[in-house]
């Protein structure tokens, strides 16, 4: 192989990275990709946001490497996943406002498609808990139509794919105890204090 040829053919192509970004943004905007993701930093650490054409599909505390967080999505939902910050703009903006205390409810669309009926009922009941207020596992189980399914309600909340936006941090034990939180109790406490301080 003569050198100038190899040199020219393999010359760095920085344009490729910009072209790849343009591709990913367009694939997300035109729904050619089934899922688009971005990561954002927040007072509670790095968050992973994932949107489908139906709305926000996941808001996850990114405590593990990104590949590990994306792998189950690629396996269970679709491998057609691209990174696009632009695609997640509406939710990113609302989250910023929420953390600054300026926003008390979320409006951008959520993706309920992948949820089972009872989980969906529990999480919709959770969305109805007002900002700054709290409910109990029995409370959301009752609102979901089955007062005796507290344990199932707890599981549904533990598997909440949309942390913060579906406010499972507002659900406490009937005894007044804190209950659990998938992201860690320090985060539950932070969110409750934030809402307490910013309550109208």
């Amino acid at each position: 192989m003569n050198d100038p040829l190899a040199h020219a053919l393999r010359a760095p192509a920085p344009e490729a990275h910009a072209a790849a970004r343009r591709f990913a943004d367009r694939a997300a905007a035109e729904h050619e990709a089934d899922l688009a993701y971005t990561t954002v930093s927040s007072p509670l650490g790095e968050l992973l946001l994932v949107a489908s054409p139906h709305g926000l599909a996941q808001l996850h505390y990114l405590d593990e490497p990104l590949e590990l967080a994306l792998e189950p999505l690629a396996r269970r939902r679709s491998p057609r996943i691209v990174e696009s910050a632009a695609a997640l703009d509406p939710w990113r903006r609302e989250l910023d406002e929420y953390f600054s205390g300026a926003r008390r409810s979320f409006e951008a669309q959520l993706d309920w498609e992948a949820m089972r009926p009872f989980q969906s009922a529990v999480l919709r009941a959770t969305v109805a808990i007002p900002y700054g207020a709290t409910s109990t596992y029995t409370g959301v189980a009752t609102a979901a139509g089955n007062p005796r399914a507290q344990r199932a309600a707890g599981n549904a909340l533990g598997a909440n794919p949309l942390a913060i936006i579906i406010p499972c941090h507002r659900v406490l034990r009937s005894s007044g105890g804190f209950g659990g939180y998938t992201g860690g109790l320090h985060r539950k406490q932070y969110l409750l204090e934030l809402e307490e301080l910013s309550r109208p």
């Binding site: 053919l9 192509a13 490729a16 690629a74």
Partner: peptide, 17 residues
């Protein structure tokens, strides 16, 4: 299959070249 983004990042430069 890995997320499509993996392929995009790994191979976009060679595709471009």
């Amino acid at each position: 299959l890995p997320p499509f983004q993996d392929l995009l990042e790994r191979h976009s430069e060679d595709v471009w070249r």
